[in-house]
């Protein structure tokens, strides 16, 4: 098949789409659904800027996922973490720890952090660092990002 009809839930909204099979989830999110909060950074799965969550907790890469393979799946982007104007604890912690500089890695970094804490709400620093691999930040040296995950961990 060259196109596939899929039903994709993004931040709680169901979208019935007919997607060309060669289009990535990242392209569909950004170009078809205007969910531009999920970023392109490298396209080859190294930088993590396109990280989104499946079922609210599993981190995947938008750039290395075919949209056609996401039929019936539920995706959360960074824009879907805020609920009724209330930020997710990870988002709050990123602000409070000043873990954001240029902000381009932030959507992916926040989604990744949510996934880390979903798997283990009380990770060690070593575990946080191990699991932040795959999300490149060129601004912060990761110091304040690690601190933000630790701060969020105290609230979850």
């Amino acid at each position: 098949m060259k196109k596939r009809s899929i039903s994709l839930t993004v931040n709680g909204t169901v979208h019935d789409l007919e997607v060309p099979v060669h289009r990535t989830l990242l392209q569909v999110l950004r170009e078809d659904l205007d969910q531009v909060e999920t970023k392109y950074g490298c396209g080859t799965g190294e930088c993590g800027a396109c990280t989104v969550l499946v079922d609210g907790e599993k981190a995947i890469l938008g750039c290395l996922t075919l949209a056609a393979s996401m039929d019936g799946k539920s995706i959360t982007t960074v824009a879907g973490l805020e609920k009724d104007g209330q930020l997710h604890p990870v988002q709050e912690a990123f602000i409070e720890e000043h873990a954001i500089q240029c902000g381009y890695c932030t959507p992916g970094m926040v989604c990744k952090s949510v996934s880390i804490l979903a798997k283990n709400p009380k990770p060690s620093e070593e575990e946080i660092r191990h699991n932040l691999e795959g999300n490149i930040c060129r601004c912060t040296g990761y110091v304040k990002i690690v601190q933000a995950v630790q701060r969020a961990s105290e609230r979850i």
């Binding site: 060669h22 392209q27 396209g43």
Partner: peptide, 14 residues
Amino acid sequence: MSSRVLPVFDLLLP
């Protein structure tokens, strides 16, 4: 070649 746009192909989903 592009890191954003995949080449066209046919998807088989057995």
